[in-house]
Design a protein around this nucleic acid. Sequence first.
DNA 1: ATGCTTTACGTCTAGCGTAATGATT
DNA 2: AATCATTACGCTAGACGTAAAGCAT
Lengths: 303, 303
Amino acid sequence: MKLDEMDLLVRVAETGSMTLAARQLNLTPAAVSAAVKRVEETVGVRLFERTTRTVHPTEEGLRVIEGCQEVVARWQRTLEAVRGASQSLAGTIHISAPADTTYQILEPVIARLSQQHPELQVVVHSSDALHQLHREAIDMAIRYGPMPDSTLSARRLAICPGVLVASPAYLERSGRPSQPGELAKHRCITLRLASVPVTTWALQSAAGARTVPLQSPLCGDGYLARRWALAGQGIALKSLFDVIDDLESGRLERVLPAYTTSPMAIHAVFPSRRFLPARVRALDAAITAEFNDRLARCERWYG
Amino acid sequence: MKLDEMDLLVRVAETGSMTLAARQLNLTPAAVSAAVKRVEETVGVRLFERTTRTVHPTEEGLRVIEGCQEVVARWQRTLEAVRGASQSLAGTIHISAPADTTYQILEPVIARLSQQHPELQVVVHSSDALHQLHREAIDMAIRYGPMPDSTLSARRLAICPGVLVASPAYLERSGRPSQPGELAKHRCITLRLASVPVTTWALQSAAGARTVPLQSPLCGDGYLARRWALAGQGIALKSLFDVIDDLESGRLERVLPAYTTSPMAIHAVFPSRRFLPARVRALDAAITAEFNDRLARCERWYG
DNA sequence: ATGCTTTACGTCTAGCGTAATGATT
DNA sequence: AATCATTACGCTAGACGTAAAGCAT
């Protein structure tokens, strides 16, 4: 029995698909299928119940896969302990994050880390889709909003309300709305999340909740929305977390400051494999530090 | 990296020899040498410092070997958990014990266990030599006397003084010695331990210690000594543990009952590998139960 | 001189990709 | 129709044994 085969089992179980596991491991589906069959024969029990569309671990399969996870993790730890003498990090990290987070927050963090560790390669996947996590072998992802419980493990980085923002120039030109109803008269910049345009904003204030329907001339990802807002194109709804820099510097102003959306969590998401390589732990630490700093500024500004 | 290779590393470290490890694994020394070299290359560190006579783990080697031990043990546990559904034990156990222990104590225990589990095969190595533990791949051994600290792990089964015994017939015929000095006039049955004849008995009593020099007409292993004593051939020095049956039944009598040797421990000895297969655990349990029972009888008789 | 590790070499099998097949949505 | 798992087949590389060489005790 090989450790690679154990890793393979774990990935098949995680992705629920031999093809995806194959893609992660740079193998063909045929090889993965054969490997699963091979292991099942040597172990002597059926590990996955499978149709051509789904792959489900069996009762015993779960036990075996858990064992595989721990075994692989234990081995990786010893390897790291033994050759980790050279304190420099090496290898490739695949990280996925929403566009705005990538360009605004991650970019400097990653640049710094990359400079400290020249042998490190960071591949950035700018995406909102969680399922991409398994499609490519993503090591770490950052996601806004509630976490669907799945085979992923997540740690909360921050929790922050959404706020309406616009540039001072735009507000000078178009006026400051004093209540949500007036938003209909403004250029509102909306998001397209997972290819689906967002058509309403759910605002709340001390006075109560209010859902505002929108038709928006500008619709894009979160990064575009912020850039457009900065360029005076209109009013955007962004997580406070994303615009704290702009608010602090005065490049953006809050609109209807009595209103926010309900707080939304930001998570660091990892594949459920037990062991994170040192390079991923380092990136995680750097990102977490950055988020904590930023979160503190949000709370200071907001509170 | 294969689990078999990890097991191989563990065995090389345990035995301190590639050839012995090869013998345990049914491989050639060439294959073991190649495997070690292979692993060293994939891990990237030298695991063993070796001359042609010795194989010593390096600093990193120790870490890696420990990792291998745990990994292999973890995997064996999952395997056992998964296919252990069939509660019957199967496979082969190699057990090593002194002759008398084998014939008198182990024989019925093993017979019983073998009957309960028809697929079980027990290979008994009647031997006193600890180093045999690594020569053959012994799963469990029973040893009298102090444990040299080594790569073996041991658990104490009992601790018992040695006593002088002879058959009533012999004592009727030759008379009962009343003090150690009189032993010189008797036929004393001695042991040959590790091919070295024992020429003195170190006795002690409330009055003090006394070392008696011997020249003995009969010299053999512990089983022979007991049989000769039973046959009225003379006086033997045996662990109380070995002769409790004979003393209880009156087939043997204690000689110089005020005198014993200092208590000697009896250990169950295992190779230091982390995980004992269920079959070995079962045998261990059965033997331990037998020893506990016997030890209780010793204490009752002695106290 | 014995017994160990190492190297060289020939052999064989395990494990991969390619490509075709079968099944499911 | 598209996508996934499976099977068949040819190929390559890894792992073993044999045999010989090199060292240490």
